[in-house]
């Protein structure tokens, strides 16, 4: 009974994984791809881990279940941060939005970020100039 529930959860997770990767192929630009892929693959993998936790707690081995839950928490916390960092990096490195996008409110802020020098970089330049 528990095993059936676990395999249903794993099956739904696998379907989400596959859909996320199809999104990676079909959508037009980096930002849309990151959206589809991050959402679907994060939830899919979390469901896989949840299924493994079910199997573990229903008798196979309790440590496996606990590790699966801890890993699910890690994936859920780190994956959106990674997608955010890559999208910010993509915008600042000059990747344009898809031409049919309707709005772009980030342009002025990106210019502002690129103009201010980083403190570390400025300090390094000072040091090399000094002697």
């Amino acid at each position: 009974m528990m095993l059936d529930v676990a395999w249903w959860i794993i099956g739904v997770g696998l379907a989400f994984d596959l859909l996320g990767c199809v999104g990676l192929i079909r959508l037009p630009d980096v930002y849309n791809r990151a959206q589809a892929a991050t959402k679907c693959v994060t939830l899919g993998t979390c469901m896989l881990l949840l299924g493994v936790a079910f199997v573990g707690f229903s008798g196979t081995s309790v440590p496996m279940g606990i590790k699966a839950l801890i890993c699910a928490a890690f994936v859920l916390l780190t994956s959106p941060v990674g997608a955010h960092a890559i999208c910010r990096g993509a915008y600042l490195s000059g990747v344009k939005l898809w031409p049919e996008s309707v709005e772009d409110a980030f342009g002025p802020r990106a210019d502002q970020i690129q103009q201010q020098p980083t403190q570390k970089g400025a300090a390094d330049r000072e040091e090399t100039k000094a002697p």
């Binding site: 989400f16 999104g23 959508l27 959206q35 959402k39 679907c40 939005l97 049919e100």
Partner: peptide, 23 residues
């Protein structure tokens, strides 16, 4: 709900998206 929404958009033959960055 978000995942079902994205899955629908990905599987739809026309890819019905209207992307943009808002503040």
């Amino acid at each position: 709900r978000a995942n079902l929404d994205v899955a629908f958009r990905v599987l739809h033959p026309d890819v019905p998206i209207r992307p943009g960055i808002v503040r």
